[in-house]
Design a protein around this nucleic acid. Structure first.
Lengths: 352, 352
DNA sequence: CTGAAAGCGCTAACAC
DNA sequence: GTGTTAGCGCTTTCAG
């Protein structure tokens, strides 16, 4: 393999100094048109590519942004990732992708690695990690932002997110307004996932503020998979007294749950109501169409990236932002019904 | 912001040379236990992170792999991406992500950028791009591999993929064996997407080898979206003589199409058969469950990453590999039926 | 507007 | 085993 061209080769051939070549590439306007043109010609002729690594070392800017997500398989994270990538790309930044698989240890390792790679900024998922990790990031002077989890106050880490807790409340209010009292919960693993935990907390608070008790057997935590949602729903339906509604804290599990209801011969929403969370594109393509909480994944990704890039420009920390969520009422929720002695359904309340 | 620690600070404090510190970090076994321990203590005390950029420049290895995909929203690409990321991560490589949005120009820009960032290897999606781009990659001595598109022969670019064309043939054979002759096609934009083009070619060849003619109005190209699949199906169903089966060259469009059939009051597969392509997890969660071609997205990602890393070790080009596809027969396909003069359906053949 | 020169922080021979 | 030293390829003052 022939040794690659360096800026010096270009400089020599164009009869200028390396500084001038550098200028032509980075601030062409500061070079006399003639010189610029001559240099550019040589560059083009050889298809010279600048050495980004050397450039980064000399300028101490890597022009890269680290992104850490728990998984990319759940398409809701794919949305925000794509948005972040798009904004970063457009601003000349490359995204270094890390996938933590919901493991705090792996996440720490990834963050360390990203910091060693000298990313200019960092976008994290969720707000829960050891204080030492935040310290490490800050000690390295790298601006960062937390997504998918709203961190209130101006003191802590900056966050660009919607409010998971509020989303949970809105979903539960909807069910409660429809008359449901026996409500199940299917959500992600709250021990590893503060988004899931917030949604669960909203569920529990809502139950309690109805004067009811939180029942452990109505709550199922599981992985973000269709099958997990289905399995959890199967458990719920096997209960002596099954819930009349289930809050599925993400659409993937909701869709799995929906199909399990069908398998059991239950009609949704006549026999049981389901509300999801995320509003994936598929949510309105299942039958019945899924009532869900719409989260601004794309918008959040765009804004997070924008805020990081801004921070890079100003030299300060990234600014926080809260994005709105929205209840999207479709066809998977209805007023509670109850079975009469013959086992046939009687609609109790009507307020779709 | 206090100036970050360098290897020299560590060396000074530990009373050794920078070379020794470097050794402790990169090949600890070559350092005397006592020294190693002393140095490590200083490193830990300060939470010193090595400067990956400087390291890369000095060692001329960036320990990064560039990945270019057209989109991350379609979860089939998310699968392979996650797999690649996992393998790379485990081997100490970071993935630099580029999303081309099906634009050749953007893709070229991204590849150039990745090359400038001095990725050690490159994983591309699809095999179609200007010869000059391949030349540029090769001129830079960067091993690469094409995924999602099988490139036959040993001469051209190495590829790790399944055979899209064969997948298309298998799907069509299935429909034809069920007696279908009037078959529609919904696929991605073949002008921008050689995977879609191969699948379309398989469709056309299959039609022709049945002694039939390829009808333009039976073919719809559109974006990878649920809505696009639905819209395309609407067109097909609006035809004076509508197809008895449709080959949807990806599951996302297939699911959109499936729901459009339902909207029209058509029963799948009694009135119309649908076969998809990809076997997304959701494919068996739609009703009827989708008959589709299973592609080894995850396996392909893993293998592509593995082959690149191998190439990095050996110094040669990456080795090609072909992965198998598989027809998964579920409930969206059945033997053809036809309308009698009254417009009512009569089942012709029976072989579910 | 352009050039000279001093690094950026680390690795990798090569000595000792 | 460990230290010395010369770069890796570029940017960036600072002169001119």
């Amino acid at each position: 393999m022939k040794p690659r061209l360096t800026i010096r080769d270009i400089a020599r051939e164009a009869g200028v100094s390396t500084a001038t070549v550098s200028r032509v590439m980075n601030s062409p306007e500061s070079v006399a048109p003639d010189t610029r043109c001559a240099v550019q010609t040589v560059i083009d002729r050889h298809g010279y590519l600048s050495h980004g690594i050397a450039m980064s070392l000399a300028s101490s800017r890597s022009m890269s942004i680290g992104l850490v997500i728990p998984t990319i398989i759940n398409s809701i994270y794919a949305s925000s990732t794509q948005a972040i990538q798009g904004i970063a790309q457009a601003a000349g930044y490359t995204v270094l992708l890390g996938v933590s698989e919901f493991s705090p240890e792996l996440e720490e390792k990834i963050i360390r690695q990203l910091l060693e790679r000298r990313v200019d900024g960092l976008i994290l998922t969720g707000g829960e990690r050891k204080r030492a990790i935040y310290d490490m990031i800050e000690a390295n002077g790298v601006p960062y932002v937390v997504t998918w989890k709203l961190l209130p106050g101006n003191a802590g880490p900056p966050s660009v997110s919607f409010d998971n807790h509020r989303g949970g409340l809105v979903a539960m209010e909807h069910l409660i307004a429809l008359g449901h009292r026996k409500i199940g919960l299917i959500c992600g693993r709250s021990a590893l996932n503060d988004r899931a935990r917030e949604r669960r907390r909203a569920y529990e608070e809502s139950i309690i503020s109805c004067g009811l008790e939180v029942e452990a057997r109505l709550i199922h935590e599981a992985d973000f998979e269709l099958d997990s949602g289905r399995d959890a729903m199967r458990e719920l339906l096997g209960l002596p007294e099954r819930p009349t509604a289930v809050f599925c804290a993400n659409d993937v599990q909701a869709i799995g749950a929906l199909h399990e209801c069908e398998e059991h011969g239950l009609r949704v929403p006549a026999d049981i109501s389901l509300v999801g969370f995320d509003d994936l594109p598929i949510a309105k393509y299942v039958r019945p169409q899924l009532t869900t909480i719409r989260v601004p994944a794309q918008r959040m990704g765009e804004l997070a990236a924008t805020r990081i890039i801004e921070a890079l420009r100003t030299g300060g920390p990234a600014a926080s932002a809260e994005l709105p969520i929205e209840l999207v009422v479709r066809d998977s929720t209805a007023a509670v019904s109850t079975r009469n002695p013959r086992g046939r359904l009687i609609r109790m309340v009507q307020s779709p």
